[in-house]
Design a protein around this nucleic acid. Structure first.
Lengths: 217, 217
DNA sequence: GTCTATATGCGGATAGAC
DNA sequence: GTCTATCCGCATATAGAC
């Protein structure tokens, strides 16, 4: 439990929850330290600043997710001779890790994805630059895998489709919980949702290219 | 130009831009009134509160977008006998209006969509409830249209796919501009993007259902 | 409708004792 | 590592003159 962990971890846990519920700017260090039973000065002692605390909250969860994505892709590619995978395998290697980790992490995991959905709106341009660098390696690896799987799709199509894929996933993770309460049809088990999402994204990624072009430009 | 319009409109324009650039909580009324050449007290005089100002910013753009969506759907349905449309027609009726309006509105329009992407993270639960009610009629009409076009897809599949569709669109509109600067492949004209997005979403919406079920449950 | 002045409170960060 | 006390600035909102 949170209350038994050390101060640094308690701050991380509480910050994650409050950032998820009220946003980064909507949460004060006083709110966080009060709930974490920590002193107001401890955030600066342990993390340096409020923004650095947010970075720590993000990194703690994103690192294992991206590691798992790359591990799955490595494993799939090692099982083939030419590294040509099916679109659905690639899509699942990208989409399943966040869902799997969220399940591992329980309620804290659910909150984390609401934090993620808010990064764009509430942080400085420099912060977002640093933040996105965490994804550069992952996106590059998956881009290459998609290029091999869809040799007839122009690079620009693939790049945009990866953005659409990320959007479907991110929106699902940040709005999904909120919207479940408004629509009976959305009230499903997470294991069903990942199936629905994988089917949708795989079909979208495999759509007929909008134009013909050498994919290796 | 903004500088020639009346105070109320100038405040709306500046608020839209600053909310888009720095977020709702990251923008102060002082920032807004300073740039709009208006007095700090004028926001409360014209709108009542900061949150009411945000609501006005959102409504000014969302109303014509949703009106256009419904008009396109009406028009398509009036051209058929049984109101059964193609998936791509429905998808385009949903996706094209925001892109078309953004084009009409120029730079102000581009900013607006960044505001939209931030609503979830920076407002109260009650505010979001009211906000989402603006979409209830639209989503219900499009849901019915998709049910007719895809009679074999279970209702739960369609509801989630509409969420995925909205996610692809919302993510594209809020992150697209930022990411264009980081990846050459993403640097495309908006008219190309809507084509790429429509193709992707249409394929996703038409994906093979994950299970068989009576769609009219 | 627009202005100045002000009420009132919360924000992040830090100094320095323990 | 943790605490108290405090610095200093900015926030929204409003009262009341013009």
């Amino acid at each position: 439990m949170s209350s038994l962990a050390n101060t640094k971890t308690r701050i991380l846990d509480v910050a994650e929850r409050l950032f998820g519920d009220h946003g980064f700017l909507g949460t004060s260090l006083r709110d966080i330290t009060k709930e974490a039973n920590a002193n107001i000065a401890s955030v600066n002692y342990h993390f340096g600043s409020k923004e650095a605390l947010l970075a720590a909250v993000l990194e703690r969860r994103l690192e294992p997710i991206n590691e798992l994505r790359l591990a799955k892709l490595d494993r799939l590619e090692s099982q083939t001779e030419d590294k040509v995978l099916s679109v659905e395998d690639i899509v699942r290697a990208f989409l399943e890790p966040p869902f799997a980790k969220r399940k591992d992490w329980g309620a804290q995991g659910t909150t984390f994805f609401r934090v993620l959905g808010r990064v764009h709106g509430e942080t400085s341009q420099e912060f977002r630059e640093t933040f996105m660098q965490q994804f550069d390696v992952v996106l590059q690896r998956f881009f290459t895998a998609f290029q091999r799987a869809l040799p007839n799709a122009p690079s620009k199509d693939l790049a945009w489709r990866m953005l659409f894929m990320t959007g479907s996933m991110a929106f699902t993770m940040s709005w999904g919980e909120t919207l479940k309460q408004r629509d009976e049809n959305l009230n499903r088990d997470p294991s069903e949702v990942i199936e629905l999402l994988s089917a949708y994204v795989s079909a979208g990624m495999s759509a007929t290219p909008t134009s013909q072009e050498n994919p290796k430009t």
